[in-house]
């Protein structure tokens, strides 16, 4: 092939060279520096995480000097009553908050896609997504004042406040993938169900809901991760003894940093990797 092009190059130049140049034009890979930028981006994304994981196995109590392999920090984390307590609280809170948020978001998504357009629909869309646009610090302060008033009135100081706050900002994260799924779903499927004598509830139960599951799972997982991660709002809303894992870790950082923190972070990293992998396998199977 190369030989042939070489031999016929003068005659072929006009016919062959043109389409080849056109094909190259819009390929981003040929832009100068593209490879370097890509490598830099991946390095910045993953190098810190990699170092965090590596030093969680450090025998020495240092983040900078390697003192040999050891699982002692994992052992320390498991034996730390406080770490166990805040981890369980964080997981429980994330589970409950994203569970409620996903339910509400599913209903909201149905309400904004499966009805005739009504006046103020865009307004409602904006209202649902408000937590995405308002700075967390503003929401945090607002919730602090609002909940303080309720606390004074009722005397209730339980986990309800954290659940309410986390649910509120999980809703848009759960809403977006569910709504996206509903919008791409062929509406004639639901018509077909109704045509085949399904009541509106049966059509939802047998057709819409099963097809919506990947969206709902994605929404739930997004909400779960966001709740697990929330520092600012939790810090403002929590009462005494209601530390979640992130606020606990933040508190620990103010004192001394030991690789115990690395071990906890690594465990949570492993957990989220498991969830994401499970989700991928689940949705791929469903086709």
């Amino acid at each position: 092939m190369a030989e042939a092009t070489g031999r016929y190059a003068p005659a072929d130049r006009t016919t062959v060279a043109k389409p080849r140049r056109r094909a190259r034009n819009f390929d981003v890979r040929h832009l100068p520096g593209f490879g370097a930028v890509a490598i830099f981006t991946f390095f910045m994304l993953y190098a810190p995480i990699l170092i965090l994981v590596v030093f969680s196995f450090n025998a020495a109590p240092s983040q900078a000097q390697w003192g040999g392999f050891s699982l002692q920090w994992y052992e320390a984390a498991f034996n730390n009553r406080q770490v166990r307590e805040v981890s369980i609280r964080s997981l429980w809170l994330a589970l409950v908050a994203s569970g409620i948020a996903t339910t509400v978001a599913t209903l909201a998504a149905l309400g904004t896609t499966r009805v005739r357009r009504f006046p103020g629909q865009t307004m409602i869309y904006a209202l649902i997504n408000q937590p995405l646009m308002v700075p967390e610090i503003v929401t945090g302060v607002a919730l602090l004042i609002f909940f303080a008033a309720i606390k004074v009135q009722t005397g209730y100081t339980g986990m309800g406040y954290l659940v309410a706050a986390h649910t509120a900002f999980c809703i848009p994260f759960a809403y977006l993938p569910i709504r996206a799924r509903l919008e791409t779903m062929d509406i004639t499927l639901e018509r077909a169900a109704a045509d085949l004598y399904a009541s509106p509830f049966q059509a939802f139960r047998h057709v819409t809901l099963p097809l919506l599951v990947p969206g709902i799972v994605a929404g739930f997982m997004l909400g779960f991760v966001i709740s697990l991660d929330a520092v600012v709002i939790t810090e403002f809303v929590k009462s005494a003894g209601q530390d979640t894992l992130p606020t606990y870790m933040l508190g620990q950082l103010r004192r001394n940093i030991t690789p115990e923190m690395n071990a906890i972070a690594t465990l949570f990293l492993a957990l989220s990797l498991c969830i994401v992998t499970a989700f991928f396998l689940l949705t791929r199977k469903r086709g």
């Binding site: 004639t188 049966q202 099963p210 097809l211």
Partner: peptide, 26 residues
Amino acid sequence: VNTVFQNYALFPHMSVAQNIGFGLKM
């Protein structure tokens, strides 16, 4: 009354037999 849709609108998560049996099941 039953309809044959232009794009068929078969339920993608059900088998051929489940699709055909859907109306009677409902």
